[in-house]
Write a protein that binds this DNA or RNA. Sequence first.
DNA 1: CTGATTTGACCGAG
DNA 2: CTCGGTCAAATCAG
Length: 370
Amino acid sequence: MESNSCRWEQKTLMNELMEGMELAKQLRLNLGAKSSAETREFLLQKILSSYEKSLMILKWSGPMVQPQTQTQTQIQGVTVTVSVPPESPISVDESPRGDEFDRGTIIKEDLRDCSKKRKVLPRWTDHVRINSENGLEGPHDDGYSWRKYGQKDILGAKYPRSYYRCTFRNTQSCWATKQVQRSDDDPSVFEITYRGKHTCSQGSNPVQPPASPEKQERKLHNQNPVPQQQQQYGEQFSLQSPSNSRVNNEDLERREVVAPPFSFPSGSCGYMMGEDNFSALVLDNETFLGSFSQSFLSPATPEPNYYMASPSRMNNLAGIHNGQRSESDLPEIISANTSASNSPIPDMDFSLERVEIDTNFPFDTAGFFP
DNA sequence: CTGATTTGACCGAG
DNA sequence: CTCGGTCAAATCAG
């Protein structure tokens, strides 16, 4: 199994790098051509994406060999730091309250060679630095629309913590939530903890009824220091937004109990990760990577995306976007491309993880799909 | 009017 | 008990 996952990672990595090379070539061709700056930037972004994802793969496979904890990448002024705790998460999503899911089924994660305690990693943290130069104080949109449902003063923290849930929680049973907290020592840094993954169409459908950017504008001027993310199309977010981001995966839950994707509450189609997880068992990286394209496809956001669309999908996406969007929209797309999404990390994690589990779990994957 | 945010109350875990 | 997370009524904004 070990070799399996290794090979898989290698293959994916190869794909990524090859794709990057391809894109670079395209870019070179475009340099001389009369292509628009947008196109070039787009290509560039895709290249960077490729590299980012490659790095991600390395990062996530890293801990298996050696407890690697942090890697940093500088991409166009965006610093992406991924922190992977020794106990790299497998991130099984759970409802915000945890009790909403049927815990009847218990999976004892037996991850032999790689990690003992990746039982449940329902959340991952994302550190985002917002530089004032990008003209956006605080906003950190990940392409999803969130609805704030609470705010709490946290002991020992200077700033309150805000709680958000997916706007489509009710309509689409999307149980993704996130917490946003401004860093004590560096107010320009926001620590965003995501929990659960989006199952709403937002994740796969880039064309969502957008909330007005002004709205955010308004909110930003509220006394609330916490970034608000309501708008989905951050028009003013361009490539050069020099925000620093750090992604930090944490395994904070020590639970042994895992609510498997297939035991999610009725009504909910389950976390996407459930699908991703298990589809990764049978489907190759193409499929798994496909999930990345979701975040890629998702509306532009000011927030850097650490996990990029799959290389092979990129072209498709590019096509799609070119077909759907005007040129002026391109920067937006690009920005979306570099925007963080909640999903990627766990996806990556899950998938890598699952590949390993694969050989241990003779699951009938078909059973995991409704 | 509708939908989002605010904010104190509530609840469960430790 | 304290604390973090969520609920939900009140409020606000378009």
